[in-house]
Structures are given as structure tokens and as C-alpha cells.
């Protein structure tokens, strides 16, 4: 599904990603963890097509195509979805209109005819029920005046409606109380199937209690310094990131002294 090779990226003069290698197969759930500032969100945003970051080296292959070559809307059409850490408020654009345009944009990319109003409504109705999204919410402007929980739930709702092949959740758990976390997690669990892949970017282990990852990667200083199974999350929870940081730092200085 996704193959990232030696990915280097920076913003202005600041190097953020320093050689990421990651392969994600169909049906797999990968968690990317790491301390603040390690580059987790940068990686998620680069996958979604954010142009603020400059990719200086490396490649990303998505379903056999060069992802870095595609505009964000093409990536969406090809099946990539990122749930934003900070969903953007867009006054004056209703959720319904936005979502219908998005869905029809993706359908157009796939060569499918657009859905009319009735078809669209029946498509979203079912997903609304699953996530407990209220009709009044989707009549409002996109994310405008939404509570933190409503925003995150709205992201997962969009994910369900747009039905991507690869979903990237960028710190979707941050700022959520336990009930909202459960709703979000159940949304993701229902989305999961052998054809879909998920990347969960998170600082904490608690979301992973509800969404069980197949692999966990720890990102530090723009590199994956440790990969493992779901047990790694518990280890991190117990030990914190310090141990991994120290290991990585001493490895780094060892490398430097060798040079």
C-alpha cells in the first residue's frame, strides 16, 4: 500500500525528517509514536500533501504511484485521508456542502458519476448514526464553533463517508475525553478491514487501548528509532520516552565519534 524510502524533509532551514523508512501493507494498522517535536505530524502532513514542507530526499510510493508527485486532491482521490490534529474552521461553508463536494470530487477522480442530493444524504445518514452525529451539526459551517470533541468526531465521520484506502489519524486522541475517545475508536474499528490501512499518529498509548495496532514505530529527531509490536506501547507508557531518547542520543554520538 505505502512505501516510504529514506524520506528527508524540512521547513525553511529546519530539518525535520531525517531518513524515514516505512512500509505499510494492506490491512495493517501502524502506530507512530514519539515525543513532541519528533516529526510525527510532519510525516502525516507530508503524506496528505502539505506544501509547507519541502521534501529534499527520498520517495513515497502509494499503490504503485509516486505520491510526492500528486496534488492533495489527487491523493484524496487515490485513497489517502488524513484526520487533522487541528481541524480547520471554515465559516460560510456548510458541512453538508463541503462533504458532498469532497465525495463527488473523489468520485470524479475515480471516474464515477456524482451522487445527487438524495443519494448523498442516504450515504451519510448511516455514518451519522454510527458516530452519533446530529443533523444540526452537519447543517453548520465546517468546524465553526465546534467543541474539540465535535471536531475530532467530524474528522472520523468524514473518513467514514470518503472511505479512503489509507487513513492517517494525526493525534486524533489529543484533547478528547474518554467517551469521545471511545466513539472515535469505534469509528476507526468499523472502518478497518483487510483492504484498508491505518496510520495512527499519537503521543500517548491510550488510543491504542481501543485501536490495536499491528506495528508501533517510535519517531525521534526525524528518524524511526524503534519498531515493534503492540507491546512496545505499554513499554513506552511505563518507561516514558526518555529511555529511547537516551539510547538514540548515545547511538548518535557514537556514530559521530566514529566519523
Amino acid at each position: 500500500m505505502l512505501e516510504i524510502k529514506n524520506l528527508w524533509a524540512r521547513i525553511e532551514d529546519k530539518e525535520i525528517l531525517r531518513g524515514i523508512n516505512l512500509t505499510i501493507n494492506k490491512g495493517e494498522v501502524h502506530a507512530i509514536m514519539g515525543p513532541n517535536g519528533s516529526g510525527k505530524s510532519t510525516l502525516a502532513q507530508i503524506l496528505a500533501g502539505r506544501e509547507t514542507y519541502e521534501v529534499t530526499e527520498g520517495s513515497i510510493n502509494f499503490k504503485g504511484n509516486d505520491l510526492l508527485d500528486m496534488d492533495p486532491e489527487i491523493r484524496a482521490g487515490e485513497g489517502i485521508f488524513m484526520a487533522f490534529q487541528y481541524p480547520v474552521e471554515i465559516p460560510g461553508v456548510s458541512c453538508t456542502y463541503f462533504l458532498k463536494s469532497a465525495l463527488n470530487g473523489i468520485r470524479d477522480h475515480k471516474g464515477q458519476p456524482p451522487l445527487d442530493a438524495m443519494e448523498f444524504l442516504s450515504t451519510i445518514r448511516e455514518k451519522m448514526d454510527i458516530l452519533g452525529i446530529d443533523q444540526s451539526l452537519i447543517n453548520r459551517a465546517v468546524n465553526e464553533g465546534f467543541s474539540g470533541g465535535e471536531k475530532k468526531r467530524n474528522e472520523i465521520f468524514q473518513m467514514q463517508v470518503l472511505n479512503p484506502d489509507l487513513a492517517i489519524l494525526d493525534e486524533t486522541d489529543s484533547g478528547l475525553d474518554i467517551d469521545a475517545l471511545k466513539v472515535v475508536a469505534s469509528g476507526v474499528t468499523q472502518f478497518k478491514n483487510p483492504e484498508k490501512s491505518v496510520i495512527v499518529v499519537t503521543h500517548y498509548q491510550r488510543l491504542l487501548d481501543y485501536i490495536t495496532p499491528d506495528f508501533i514505530h517510535v519517531l525521534y529527531n526525524g528518524k524511526i528509532v524503534k519498531s515493534g509490536g503492540k507491546e512496545l506501547a505499554h513499554k513506552l507508557e511505563d518507561e516514558g520516552y526518555d529511555r529511547i531518547k537516551n539510547e538514540a542520543d548515545s547511538l548518535q554520538s557514537a556514530e559521530e565519534s566514529t566519523v
Binding site: 496528505a48 500533501g49 502539505r50 506544501e51 496534488d71 492533495p72 486532491e73 491523493r75 484524496a76 482521490g77 485521508f81 488524513m82 487533522f84 481541524p87 480547520v88 471554515i90 465559516p91 460560510g92 461553508v93 456542502y97 463541503f98 462533504l99 463536494s101 469532497a102 465525495l103 470530487g105 473523489i106 477522480h109 459551517a141 468524514q158 470518503l162
Partner: peptide, 22 residues
């Protein structure tokens, strides 16, 4: 906002129009 709309599959021109209309 432009990135948000585009990342959902709305092309540049439509996203631009959507925001100016809004």
C-alpha cells in the same frame, strides 16, 4: 483552509471558489 478542502478531494479551483463564496 485551502489545504483542508483539497486534502478531502476538492480540486484547487473549486476550493478557491468555495472560500471566496463563503
Amino acid at each position: 483552509a485551502m489545504f483542508y478542502l483539497r486534502s478531502r478531494g476538492i480540486d484547487y479551483k473549486s476550493a478557491y471558489a468555495m472560500l471566496t463564496k463563503a
